[in-house]
Design a protein around this nucleic acid. Structure first.
Lengths: 227, 227
DNA sequence: TAGTGGTGTGAGCAGCGGCTCACAATTCTT
DNA sequence: AAGAATTGTGAGCCGCTGCTCACACCACTA
């Protein structure tokens, strides 16, 4: 419950232009090079700010990095959540999310790359809290509305909603990486061929087909219907 | 087509004890600390070998790292593939894979961590080739047997087998990370609670339920059965 | 024994980069 | 206006670490 803050008070008081410049330059470099390869001096120069000032804002490079990650995931959540309507049905919501992910892969790819970067932070330090901060929202949102869908009979009644929310999020998260991060892009190409990136509809159609069956058809139902 | 080799000839000629010691120490450190934080001098010491010799075996730290990754994924593939039988049906195969993944999360976690580590290498260098090397096998294996299952009527006939193989692999790959890598573990806990790691059966049951429906039930079939 | 070519060593070079600190400029307080 | 506090600078310190290289040892050949 620490709820640690990853910036000094000076950063709160800083002029918005400086705050933005610093965050933008940080997100840019960290998403391009990763935490350790990115260079603080370069970032400061790109932000049009002295290194000294940067260290008045943040205790360490790591703290600065985490602040950038927080900003990036906040932005990402806004983009993604912005497109779904709270009373959409599961499959409608899924479709909107898939399309939003495909759209995000261009200009906003740096936010996704940063998100991917934290995926491998280790060494107990802030892993737990960071995960909670980044995944917390989708975890509860997905679980809640899948639970609701189950109660209202929209989807199968025999599923563990927490687990199904996890599978749902897994597919969408990986999809996001698959459209933006080098390794995941190559992986998707290996499975589906180069042209998968030119045919967004194929992905939408097939993933929806997959999700629809997974979420709506119960073994028992089908057996009963077959007599 | 490049098929680059990531070690010098001296490494092929090296005594097996040295080769093993070097690879073991490398896998150990790289999986614990990641490519850039791991220290070559420390690795050499742990392997009981001089730095100079290490650099007779490998051109650069990166080359050494990639060789370790190759070794790790080879081992991982052997562990995982060892449990499935070539004529298992899709769901049987899935169940065996899930259980193998759960079992691997203990002692062999370092191989998974290394695998996770390459997931975010970028900068065109070897991303493409590396992905092909690591994912190539599962990509073709999965696609082939899902294709076969479709032809023999074991699973739905209306699916794009390449895409469905991709979804299948996505779920299993992420599951692997979720049992071993810090961030992914936290994420799984957020969705399903602390005790998910004490109840392996819950995961097996729910994921199989999810996969069974996704792979076997066609929308058209269900509609027809409902009249 | 002398020569060749490989294996193996590890002190230490060199360059990079995170971070500091002495100082200047500015704003706030009284 | 004097003093205090905060913002802002950037040259450069210093610790770290990837990698080298001069040398020793060994095996084999002739």
């Amino acid at each position: 419950m620490g709820e640690r803050v990853y910036h000094k008070e000076a950063f709160d008081r800083a002029k918005p232009e400086y705050r933005n410049a610093v965050l933008t330059a940080g997100i840019d470099e960290f998403s391009k090079l990763g935490l350790e390869k990115a260079n603080i001096n370069v970032i400061a120069k790109k932000a049009g700010v002295s290194v000294g000032l940067l260290y008045k804002y943040f205790e360490t490079k790591e703290d600065f990095f985490i602040t950038c990650v927080e900003e990036a995931t906040k932005t990402l959540e806004e983009i993604i959540d912005g497109v779904v309507n709270s009373d959409d049905k599961l499959l409608v919501r899924a479709e909107k999310l898939i399309r939003a992910i495909q759209a995000t892969s261009g200009a906003d790819s740096k936010y996704v790359k940063l998100y991917n970067e934290i995926t491998r932070i280790s060494g107990n330090d802030g892993a737990e809290e960071l995960a909670a901060k980044v995944e917390g929202l989708s975890a509860t949102t997905y679980r809640n509305f899948i639970e609701a869908a189950r109660k209202s009979g929209d989807i199968r009644s025999d599923c563990d909603t927490a687990m199904f929310a996890f599978f749902f999020d897994t597919l969408l998260m990986t999809l996001q990486f698959s459209y933006t991060c080098d390794y995941y892009r190559e992986r998707l190409k290996l499975f589906c061929g180069e042209d998968i990136f030119d045919d967004d509809e194929r992905m939408v159609k097939e993933l929806l087909k997959f999700l629809e069956s997974a979420f709506t058809f119960e073994h028992a139902d089908v057996k009963r219907l077959e007599r």
